[in-house]
Write a protein that binds this DNA or RNA. Structure first.
Length: 695
DNA sequence: GTAGGGTTAG
């Protein structure tokens, strides 16, 4: 094996022995050099390397270096080993710098093992050898090993250079060790490297990753002339901390100082706008991007497109799409999934069908769009198509498939998927396993969920607990859910998802004091009360008949942050707490805030009409559903109307209404019609209902 | 420093 060959040869070098094979006296044929260079120029690395072997003496050092540099991907492991093997076999004393290059090469192509072995066997090392090893470990994300080698290096009396610090800092950015970061910062200052722009940028980056933006900003402000990369880093870190305004401010500051932003920076700042729904600023930045000629860039146009979709400006998004000249696969996929993930499945599908090529990501994104939009029939059809046209699915596909199973409540299909997952080893993936838990929970097969949860033991995380908890709360086993919550706290930190679930559990029992306790827990522990948590609280208080608290929680939300679900919760709450009159007022306020109603909203309104005896108004709202809001009334809306007419004896309207109904009336509706006809003496209608019931 | 798909909540 090449590897053992290398170790033997390196060992020999270590003992300073003469190589066993006598060296020929002639200079290496220059024609070999030419041939090798020629092959390298044509990208035939394997061929180039094989040309090395007829020669039993070393080629020039610079040629070894060229060859090593050409080994740039994982598939060239064998070639790299051959080059190193040739070097150490035929060179009596390979220079340290070349061995360092070899270590770097091994690191670059993912063979840390070889890098380590070569390093350990080197008779002499310089600072560069240490740096090469450290860089190799950083590249392969062996962060603990990076730190160990850094310590070893210092112990051996080799002082870290800027390169060593750059490597260690990068690893620090992975493990997010703030204490280590501060120590490194001190050392860098002490060694006088603080003027190094790359190191300073790295500090900004890692302080930001450790979520200490104040220090990140201080380092940034102390930099003499931040480079475009430094600006990119600070903008990115603000974005990732959710400090969207800061990100935007920094971007404008950068423009003021006449630094040309990088495409990634423009993209980050557009993303900041779309996350904070700051459409107007976003459009300004779009204009700036156009002026700076950024738009042919797919990274920038992707984020601009996404911003318009997220802010509901579909025409603008479409224009960006059409104007992007060189659409690559990523751009197509991003645009398509932008539509898909925002519920605009029709446009997503249109793009999907137009795509010049597709990969697993595009297929998954489209499928995910259908799932998110609860379009189960489309999802199932799409899966059939996918099975025909795609070979091979991955873990992401499986997650969506499991969502489809719970969406159509098909445990059988879910179990089949489980079998597939088990056979292909996907059960070791915690996200897939959690999706399985979720599916079993939602299909109400609690035994399977429980068994899987126990089986997961080591694998399970906070999401697994939440998925199981949700399953329990959903079927009303709230006491059990609460005792689960206790157990969970021994193992994982409850997230906002947990708390929302718990609140829903309290709402179902209903248990006001526990609900209040959860509310308190949430405030005391500084959880962010987002729109979902707020909705859960409104729901809990209103189900616990503590509606004034619900109103209070609702009113605490800033105008514009209240979404459809939250309004629906309030409307349901009014109705549930005998305050139906207020439903109509809420509906108007909701429209004023620009929130569009859905079929749930109309259920609340129609029920309120029943309560309040607004027969005519009820019909107006019912008709407005399709005429004004483009919502197709469902059976339950028709049912409400029938109840409204029956309850207030408007059998004339009822008769007309039934004639126009586009489907066969279900049993409970017919019973209601029959009873009302009897009560109000409408014989003919009663007979019709009875006949239908008989069928 | 680096844009694309996935798990849990009302």
């Amino acid at each position: 094996m090449a590897l053992t060959g290398v170790s033997a040869a390196v060992g020999r070098v270590l003992r300073r022995e003469k190589p066993q094979k006598p060296l020929l006296n002639t200079r290496p044929e220059t024609s070999i050099t030419h041939q090798i260079l020629d092959q390298l120029e044509h990208g035939n690395i394997s061929k180039a390397v094989s040309l090395l072997f007829p020669s039993l003496e070393p080629v020039s050092y610079w040629l070894y270096e060229r060859l090593l540099r050409s080994c740039s991907s994982k598939s060239l492991v064998v070639q790299a080993r051959k080059v190193v093997s040739h070097l150490v076999t035929f060179s009596p004393l390979p220079p340290i710098f070349l061995l360092n290059r070899a270590i770097e090469t091994y690191g670059r192509i993912g063979c840390v093992h070889d890098a380590r072995e070569l390093f350990e066997q080197m008779p002499e090392r310089d600072g560069g050898s240490w740096n090469a090893l450290i860089t190799a470990c950083v590249k392969n994300e062996l962060h603990e090993e990076v730190f160990r080698n850094f310590v070893r290096m210092n112990r051996d009396g080799i002082r870290g250079t800027e390169t060593s610090f750059a490597g260690v800092l990068k690893s620090c950015g992975f493990v997010l060790d703030l204490r280590l970061l501060r120590q490194l910062h001190c050392s860098v200052v002490k060694y006088g490297y603080s003027g190094n722009l790359d190191l300073e940028t790295s500090f900004v980056d890692v302080y930001g990753k450790c979520k200490v933006m104040s220090d990140a900003r201080r380092v940034f402000d102390e930099m003499g002339r931040p480079s475009d990369v430094s600006w990119n880093v600070i903008v990115r870190r603000y974005l990732e901390m959710g400090l969207n305004e800061e990100a935007v401010l920094m971007f404008f500051k950068m423009l003021e100082l006449n630094v040309r932003p990088l495409n990634h920076t423009v993209s980050s700042v557009v993303l900041a706008c779309s996350r904070s729904q700051a459409l107007e600023v976003g459009m300004v930045i779009h204009a700036i991007a156009v002026k700076l000629k950024f738009l042919p860039d797919t990274i920038v146009s992707t984020s601009v497109f996404d911003m318009y979709v997220k802010c509901g400006r579909l025409e603008n998004a479409r224009r960006v799409f059409d104007q992007t000249e060189c659409k690559d696969l990523k751009f197509w996929t991003s645009a398509m999934s932008g539509y898909a993930m925002n519920g605009i499945t029709r446009d997503a599908r249109e793009l999907f069908d137009l795509m010049p090529e597709r990969n697993i990501i595009s297929w998954n994104a489209m499928l995910g769009g259908y799932v998110r939009a609860n379009e189960w029939d489309e999802a199932l059809d799409f899966l059939t198509l996918m099975r025909k046209e795609m070979e091979g699915i991955d873990n992401v596909t499986l997650v969506w498939i499991l969502n489809v199973c719970s969406g159509v409540s098909d445990v059988q299909m879910g179990k089949q998927a489980h079998g597939f997952i088990y056979r292909h080893g996907y059960d070791a993936n915690v996200i897939v396993a959690n999706a399985l838990l979720d599916m079993y929970g939602k299909c109400g097969t609690f035994g399977s969920a429980n068994a899987l949860f126990r089986q997961m033991s080591e694998l399970r995380d906070e999401v697994s607990w939440n998925a199981l908890l949700t399953g329990l709360a959903r079927v009303g086993r709230s006491e059990q859910a609460l005792s689960f919550f206790e157990g969970m706290q021994l193992e994982a930190k409850p997230s906002k998802y947990t708390l929302a679930t718990l609140l829903a559990g309290c709402a179902n029992i209903p248990a006001l004091s526990l609900g209040k306790a959860t509310h308190g827990f949430l405030i005391r522990n500084g959880y962010d009360v987002d729109v979902v948590i707020r909705g859960a609280m409104v729901d809990m208080y209103s189900k616990c008949k503590c509606f004034d608290y619900a109103i209070h929680v609702f009113e605490e939300a800033a105008a514009g942050t209240r979404d459809l679900m939250l309004w629906n919760s309030m409307i349901r709450g009014c109705y549930r707490n005998g305050r139906s009159k207020e439903v109509f007022e809420l509906f108007m306020l909701m429209e004023d805030e620009g929130v569009k109603p859905d079929h749930v909203t109309f259920m609340g309104i129609l029920r309120a009409c029943i309560r309040e005896g607004h027969v005519e108004l009820g019909f107006q709202y019912f008709s407005s559903m399709s005429s004004k809001y483009f919502i197709l009334p469902q059976v339950e809306h028709y049912d409400c109307m029938v109840e409204l007419y029956c309850k207030y004896g408007c059998l004339h309207q009822l008769e007309e209404f039934l004639l126009l109904m586009p489907f066969d009336p279900p049993i409970q509706m017919l019973t209601r019609v029959y009873d009302a006809s009897k009560k109000y003496g409408w014989g003919k209608l009663g007979e019709w209902a009875a006949k239908k019931l008989h069928e």
